[in-house]
Simulated scan of single mutants.
Amino acid sequence: MPRLVTLYSLQWGDLSLEEVCIKAKGFGYDGIELGLPTHLDVHQTDPLYYKGIKELLEKHGLQLRTISTHLVGQAVCDKIDERHKEILPDYIWGDGDPEGVRQRAAKELVLTARAAKELRVDTVVGFTGSPIWHLLYSFPPVSQSTIDEGYRDFARRFTPILEKFKEMGVRFALEVHPTEIAFDTFSARKALEAIEYHPAFGFNYDPSHLGYQGVDYVDFIYQFHDRIFHVHMKDVYWSDMPKQVGVFGGHVPFGDPRRYWNFRSLGRGKINFEEIIRALNAIDYQGPLSIEWEDSAMDREHGARESCEFTKRLDFQLSGHAFDAFFGK
Rank of each mutant, 00 (worst) to 15 (best):
I87K: 01
E292A: 08
H60L: 11
Y49Q: 05
P253N: 02
F186L: 13
L62K: 09
L57C: 12
G287Q: 06
E55Y: 03
G246K: 04
R305L: 06
H198G: 07
L57N: 03
L162R: 02
V247G: 06
D14W: 14
A200Y: 12
R278E: 15
S319C: 09
G73M: 13
I92V: 15
T179F: 11
F316W: 13
F158A: 11
H302I: 15
E108S: 09
S239Y: 10
I161E: 07
L136Y: 09
F327H: 13
K243W: 00
Q223V: 11
I221F: 12
P89W: 03
I92R: 13
D324Y: 10
V231H: 09
T311D: 09
G267T: 08
T159Q: 04
Q103Y: 07
E58N: 13
F327Y: 15
D299R: 11
H209A: 06
K190A: 07
P131N: 06
D240T: 15
E118A: 14
A182Q: 03
I67N: 07
K243L: 01
E163V: 11
A282M: 10
E99M: 01
G31A: 13
P140Q: 03
R3Y: 09
C77W: 00
Y91N: 13
A116R: 10
Y212L: 00
P199Y: 05
Y212V: 00
G31I: 08
G28F: 04
I277V: 15
H43W: 12
D81W: 14
P242V: 05
E167K: 13
G26E: 13
V125R: 03
V247Y: 05
D256W: 10
F220A: 09
E309P: 02
K25W: 11
D14G: 15
L56Y: 04
K270W: 02
I53M: 09
Q44G: 01
E175T: 00
F186C: 06
I271W: 03
Y212D: 06
A282L: 12
G249P: 11
L4H: 02
I277R: 04
D30H: 08
L266M: 15
L48Q: 14
F316V: 08
Q44D: 01
A173Q: 03
P257F: 08
L280F: 05
D122M: 04
K54R: 15
D184E: 15
A194G: 00
V176K: 06
D30R: 02
R278Y: 13
E309K: 13
R83N: 14
C77N: 02
A279H: 10
T66G: 04
D284T: 02
V170H: 10
P141T: 14
V252I: 08
Q286C: 07
L119R: 01
Y205K: 02
K54A: 07
D81A: 14
F327A: 10
D90I: 05
D122E: 12
M1D: 12
N262S: 00
G31Q: 10
V101A: 12
H209I: 10
F316Y: 15
N204S: 05
R114C: 01
C77K: 01
S16W: 07
L111S: 00
L289K: 02
D14P: 04
E274F: 15
N272C: 05
F263E: 03
D256I: 12
P178G: 03
I32R: 00
G28D: 04
K54V: 05
V42K: 05
D148S: 12
Q223E: 14
I132A: 03
V124S: 07
